[in-house]
Amino acid sequence: MKGDIKGLKTLIMQESPSAYYVHCFAHQLQLVLVAVAKENTDCVWFLEQVSLLLNIVGVSCKRHGMLRSAKLESIMKALECGELKTGSGLNQEMGLARPGETRWGSHYRTVCNIISMYPIIRDVLITLGEDTTHKADWIKIHFMVGAFESFDFVFSLHLMFVILGYTNELSECLQRREQDIIHAIQLVGVTKNRMQHLRSEGWNQFLQNVTLFCNKLGVEVPTMEGNYVPFGRSRRFVQNQTNDDHFRREVYIGVIDKISQELDSRFDDVNMELISYMSALNPSNSFASFDAQKVRRLAEFYPKDIFWL
C-alpha cells in the first residue's frame, strides 16, 4: 500500500498531492511492538523461549492434561488453605495457547498466564524432564527448565507484562468496530505518558516486584553490581558490563525508549491532529460532535482544495 512506485498511497498522491496518509492505528501499534521485539536481543531471546515452552507443553493432549491437572490441584490446595475465594467468574481455567502473530493482545494473555501459572509450569517441566518416556525431548526440556528458572527469563517476563499491559487497553480500543476515535487518540497520549513515567520513576518498583517474585519462587537474583552473565548465550557476543548496566540501562530503559520513539514516529502529531479535527464531521447523533473551530482548522490542512467564501 505504501509502495513508492505502484503503491496505493503513491497513486492517490499523484492525483491529489494534498492528501494525507493515515495508517490503521491498530496495525501501527502492532508495528511498534514488533519493531521493539525484533531489535532488542533480550526480547528476541525471551520470545524464542516462550515459543519453545509452548512447543514442549502443547505437543500433546497428555501434556495439556498434566498442566490442567496440576492447575486444578493447586487451586484446590489454595482453597483449602483459605488463600483463594470461590465465586462466579473466579479461578477460571487457564491454558498456554499459542499467541497469534498479528494479535499482540494474545501475547499479553500468554504472558499473564505464564506469570500466574509459573510454579505449576515449572513443576510440569521438571516432571517431564524426569520421565524416562520423554527421553527424546530431554535436551529441550532440560534447557527449558534452566531458562525458565533464570533471572533473565523472569525479568523479561515481567517487563513484557508491564509494557503489554500498558498498551493492551489501547490495543483493544483500536480494534473495536464501533471505535470512538477521540477516546483512541487520548489513549495514545496516555500510553506515551505512561512510558515516560515508567522510564523516569518506575525502575525501583519494577525491580522490587521482580525480586519479590524470584524470592518467593526460588529464582536466584544476581547482585546488580556484579558482572552480567547471559543464560544460554555466549559471553563472546555480550559486552563486559554489570547487571545494573544490562538489566536497567540496556533492557529496561532501552526497550521503553524504543517504544516511545516508535509511538512518536508512527502516531505523529499531524496524523493525530488531522483525525481529531475530522471527528467534528462525524454524522452520528445528528452531528453531535460538530465543532466549527475544528472544521476551520481542518480546512487549513487542504489550502489548495478548500476555498473560503
Rank of each mutant, 00 (worst) to 15 (best):
L52D: 04
N215T: 14
Q186D: 13
F213R: 05
T132Y: 03
T133M: 13
L207S: 01
H183V: 15
K85V: 08
A97Q: 14
F143C: 09
M195H: 02
T132E: 14
I139A: 13
R248F: 07
V162P: 04
E48N: 12
I12D: 11
G189L: 10
D244V: 03
G65K: 12
G105M: 01
L157D: 05
S88M: 09
D180M: 04
F46Q: 03
E178H: 07
K77G: 03
E15R: 11
W308Y: 14
R68F: 14
C173N: 05
T102H: 06
N168D: 15
I126K: 06
Y118F: 08
H134M: 12
A70G: 08
I120P: 02
E83M: 06
Q92P: 00
A70Y: 09
Q196W: 00
P230G: 02
S156G: 04
G146S: 08
K9L: 05
V59M: 10
F301P: 01
M272F: 06
T110L: 09
E149W: 01
E172W: 01
L217T: 08
G226L: 11
L54D: 00
D269G: 01
C173F: 02
I75D: 14
S279M: 09
Q205D: 14
R199M: 03
C43I: 03
R177L: 13
E93V: 14
L53E: 01
E220A: 12
H107F: 01
D137Q: 12
T86C: 13
L31C: 07
S284C: 10
H183C: 12
R233Y: 12
F290D: 01
K140T: 04
N243G: 09
D264H: 06
L33Q: 11
E149Q: 03
E73Q: 11
L128P: 05
V59S: 15
L54C: 04
T110E: 05
C214W: 04
F237Y: 08
I12G: 06
D291M: 02
E172N: 11
S234R: 09
W45L: 03
A78T: 07
K294H: 10
E172H: 06
G3Y: 07
Q49W: 02
F231N: 13
N271Q: 13
N113C: 07
N282F: 01
Y277C: 08
F307Y: 09
V36D: 05
T86D: 11
K6S: 08
R249V: 11
